[in-house]
């Protein structure tokens, strides 16, 4: 008969209406600013620069190699290399970015900069509340705003961060071992050549270093 479908439908919506007041489980709404769903680990928004330690200007992993700048498809990265060098975590002197800007109004979150970075210096952030009243300055992230501590990276990407940290610890250990071996070899040579003139030591560092190097690797 005509009208039965309508009555069934009205009963259904009526049940929902009453039920949503009685049973809070029916409501699926997440009231966003107060309540938040946990973000998935693979979620990515815009890149940021990782630094080690406490201070961003010292611990920045980026060596201003500019690979990401060249690879970036929409070309939203701008890097200026520094004039001087700073020692990196291995103690080697490296350039550092004097200017590192990412225009996130251009960035398309493709993650290619992260893929190509050989230093694990640039990673994808999960910060998504980036609305700003200033659409020029507010959306051009400078080096200081991009730099975030490694602890932040560990928090948002625990698996990747653990792997990278392990690798870096290994590298560091190797570097330290090598430095130690170097120092030992140097010391040995120094003691062996102690009677000789210091001039000879300075002129022949290469043959002495080669066996020490091999020893460190093996």
């Amino acid at each position: 008969m005509l009208g039965i479908g309508l009555i069934k439908g009205l009963a259904e919506t009526g049940r929902n209406f009453v039920g949503s007041y009685l049973d809070p489980d029916r409501l699926v709404t997440v009231e966003y600013p107060e309540e938040r769903l946990p973000v998935k680990e693979n979620f990515r928004q815009f890149p940021f620069l990782v630094f080690d330690g406490e201070k961003a200007d010292i611990g920045l992993r980026c060596v201003a190699c500019q690979i990401c700048e060249k690879e970036c498809p929409p070309q939203c990265i701008y890097i200026e290399k520094s004039k001087d060098k700073k020692p990196d975590h291995l103690g080697k002197p490296q350039f550092y970015p004097a200017v590192f800007d990412i225009d996130i109004s251009v960035c398309m979150s493709c993650q290619i900069c992260v893929e190509v970075c050989p230093f694990d210096a640039i990673k994808m952030d999960q910060q998504f509340e980036l609305s700003t009243a200033d659409r020029f300055r507010g959306l051009l992230l400078t080096r200081d705003r991009l730099a975030k501590p490694n602890s932040h990276f560990q928090a948002i990407h625990p698996r990747d961060a653990a792997e990278i940290d392990m690798r870096r610890v290994d590298e560091r250990a190797k570097a330290e071992a090598k430095a130690k071996a170097d120092a030992e070899a140097k010391a040995k040579q120094a003691t062996a050549a102690a009677p000789g003139a210091t001039k000879a030591v300075a002129s022949t560092p290469k043959p002495a270093a080669a066996p020490a190097n091999e020893g460190a690797i093996s």
Binding site: G14, N16, F17, G19, S20, Y21, L27, V28, T29, E31
Partner: peptide
Amino acid sequence: KAIARMQNRL
């Protein structure tokens, strides 16, 4: 509000 409740929204 009523229609939202009928659709189990807030």
